[in-house]
Design a binder for these strands. Structure first.
Lengths: 195, 195, 195, 195
DNA sequence: GATGAATGAGCTTTCATTCAT
DNA sequence: GATGAATGAAAGCTCATTCAT
């Protein structure tokens, strides 16, 4: 956006990049501000000058990451297979930012956690996009009776998160297409509906 | 078994119980050994006498918890609906030990993590049980073509984990039956198979 | 002495042996009671049953060791070369109990030390023996004028301690005879007296 | 040299001074980092910021102290009585830093000790200076036949260490001159050479 | 006589945060 | 804007000591 990014913007980006990698790998509590600063190539004081505190840095990072994810997920009006698009886009995002998935999953359900508040809100943003897509499917009769769009959205998001992490950690040599196809098969039902 | 459990066994159990609750609620790094000890009603030194280190305590706890889960999951030979049993048993377990699910999910995919090695092994134990059940379904023709039992097992386990946590954290007033039914609907397919 | 050494005496000896080795190698503060007990093949409580405290064990050990040394140093009435006997006997002792020399040297001059009181007394016992021998030499005119027997005794004891340790640690392949001869040469004067 | 010593250099010096005194008085294991920091007038964290660990502080201290000693010992080219200079300079040093002698003597011969490696090297530096002086004496025929300069150097250094400590601890009211004269008498021979 | 599980004061070390430069 | 030396509260861990068995 900004054609001449202020020095600050550059510094913040360097800190984001470094923090994302380290926090994803080892968890928020296991990473020190010293490490983040030195991985970003700046002095420790700079973290505090730019973000105020370690928590605020992580908070900003989570918001930034979820924004990126939401951008990628939002389907165009004419997307042919919206569910498939969702699955593909989510997997793509977690492939590009594997650390972010690890960060999300380890903070999302920590009820009295530092970032539980922030994450609840962010999660709602994401789930809302899923819900919108799934509801459209339902209107077209593609959803089995009895399945609530809200529940299904939350579950699908969680499943994608977990599948993406499993892919990165335990089966890194599978291709995006393979994983997306597996998920689509699952989405279409592991166990058949009783007739 | 042992009618007169050694003093040390009682102490270890008290520490397990206290640690399981605290670590799940707040994450391994957020809980101090002091807190665990005092929640267990023993002195701090007792933790070190019995487990050697905080990490070793957590390691032992993860193994213990996964053993419990595996016991509950294993179906009897004559279980009528094995997949349904799996889903119900897993949800029951995470309802009974909500803390454990949080601990699992925040450590499972941390690739260079402290407990990644331990958890990889434990994950394999659980997934193997899922696979066995799903394979039996497949033999009965209940599995859609193209779905690999391995992939499906891992994904189903992850999904259950995520759904159980979502249930505990974001929708604690839903009943086990409601949640199990939702999952079963999902398992049978959110998006119908193309005919 | 006691033909049927009580169990206690055996246990105490095992503890002495283990403690002497460990304390010499690493210093009193670096060795734990656990280590001493387990090196002696007894339980930790046994140390306290027999000695009351770690300090008391070390105290007893120092007294015992100095007694042994004093026994070896004391010359017979008809010893031909008493100074040479002293040097030889001291070196022999420190060769047999190298750990004891290390223990002595690291505690002897620690002025507010735990065992400074005990060691001051013990040192006096040893220095008195040296003094007796040197004084006899002086009466035979073998001592240069101006040398005080007290100073000389203390210095000779210290020198022997240091030389014995240097021998054990930095030149362990020299023989006792070689070392004794070196010391005797030194004792007879590195720098000749001005005539 | 540096007219405006960096803040860190000043802090390190304060820590050296405080540590030297306390460690010598009570031994490395008996002194806490808290004590060192507060004696130096800085916070505990500052010790770790500047030295990394307690062991590293002691290591640095040993190197620093030995450097000081070596500087003092090295004779000018025209020193009239080099052996006497050596004796005087060493005693002076240990009078000025009584703590350092205690530290040296209690760590020097601890073979698997924490600082044995460091101290072996440092000892070699010092002994080399002694050797140089004694060899010069030997060339002038001042050394009795059969005495090896290496052995004599090591022994003389050890003796000076021990004498200086004995002086500080057991006879603190003797003057430097008195002690130096006693040592010189000893050096010239306690026991006369056989004619 | 001997044991070893349990204790808790006190240690070393870490690290988010501050602030003078 | 940025720095990094300094801080001190709080953490993990050690270990001499106790005591019920």
């Amino acid at each position: 956006m900004n054609p001449r990014p202020a020095r600050t913007a550059v510094t913040k980006q360097k800190l984001f990049d470094a923090a994302l990698r380290l926090l994803g790998e080892r968890g928020a509590a296991e990473v020190t501000v010293d490490e983040i600063a030195s991985a970003a190539g700046v002095a420790k004081g700079t973290v505090y000058y730019n973000f105020g505190s370690k928590d605020a840095l992580i908070d900003a990072l989570l918001r930034h990451g979820v924004d990126l994810l939401a951008q990628r997920l939002r389907p165009a009006d004419d997307t042919a297979e919206p569910v498939e698009h969702l699955v593909g886009a989510a997997l793509e995002f977690f492939r590009d930012y594997p650390a972010f998935g690890q960060l999300l999953v380890s903070e999302m359900w920590r009820s009295p956690g530092q970032w539980h508040g922030t994450l609840s809100l962010l999660r709602d943003d994401i789930v809302a996009i899923f819900k919108q897509v799934i509801q459209r499917s339902a209107e077209q009769g593609k959803l089995p009776e009895g399945v609530q769009a809200g529940t299904a959205s939350a579950a699908l998001f969680g499943t994608l998160l977990v599948v993406a992490l499993d892919w990165q950690v335990f089966q890194p040599d599978r291709s995006l297409d393979q994983v997306r196809d597996s998920v689509m098969l699952l989405v279409r039902g592991v166990s058949p509906h009783p007739r």
